[in-house]
Design a protein around this nucleic acid. Structure first.
Length: 159
DNA sequence: GCCAACGTTGGC
DNA sequence: GCCAACGTTGGC
């Protein structure tokens, strides 16, 4: 049974379009420097499903879906002094931070906005709405399915 | 650009 | 081990 997750990215930094532009439609999810988020990545398995969320834009929204294609391994950007996310406390012989690889699955025709999510009663318990700062978070199967349903309804309506 | 929420750091 | 200060995230 796959598990379900939501991963946030600022579209100015790395958007779903950037992911779509990769030759393999795959990227490594570097730069997570928060223990709770890291632990969620460590709990991921190949085949798990991911909601790709664009934060820090208006309106914030789920832009599409992706799949985990490589399980947690050390985030090498923590070793690069020139990288924004360099961390001296994560040495090569004892890495503190991990990342996973994800592959793009689907880009929604129309984004599912945070307002759409707030307007949907069955999504009221999403971590997204209750622990707003967590950048990698678990999602239930029914929440995941509901978001997909919303996406196809919005696409049909042409909103 | 503001500010609330929250995670991390560091002094004690 | 507590907690105040500080920095960052992220919605508005």
């Amino acid at each position: 049974m796959p598990k379900f997750w939501l991963m946030k990215s600022e579209p100015d930094v790395y958007s779903v379009k950037d992911l779509a532009a990769e030759k393999t439609k795959t990227t490594h999810w570097d730069g997570v420097r928060n223990y709770a988020a890291r632990n969620h990545m460590r709990a991921m398995a190949v085949g798990d499903r991911v909601l790709y969320y664009h934060s820090n834009c208006k309106p914030a929204h789920v832009a599409g879906t992706a799949k985990v294609v490589r399980e947690a391994y050390p985030d090498f950007t923590a070793w690069d002094k020139s990288d924004k996310h360099y961390d001296a406390k994560s040495p090569q012989d004892n890495p503190r931070w991990d990342m996973v690889d994800i592959k793009l699955e689907q880009v929604f025709d129309l984004p599912v906005t945070i307002d759409d999510i707030k307007a949907t009663k069955s999504l009221a318990k999403m971590v997204l709405l209750n622990n707003t700062r967590l950048s990698v978070q678990p999602v239930t199967k029914s929440e995941f399915d509901t978001i997909l349903k919303l996406a196809s309804q919005l696409a049909k309506k042409g909103k």
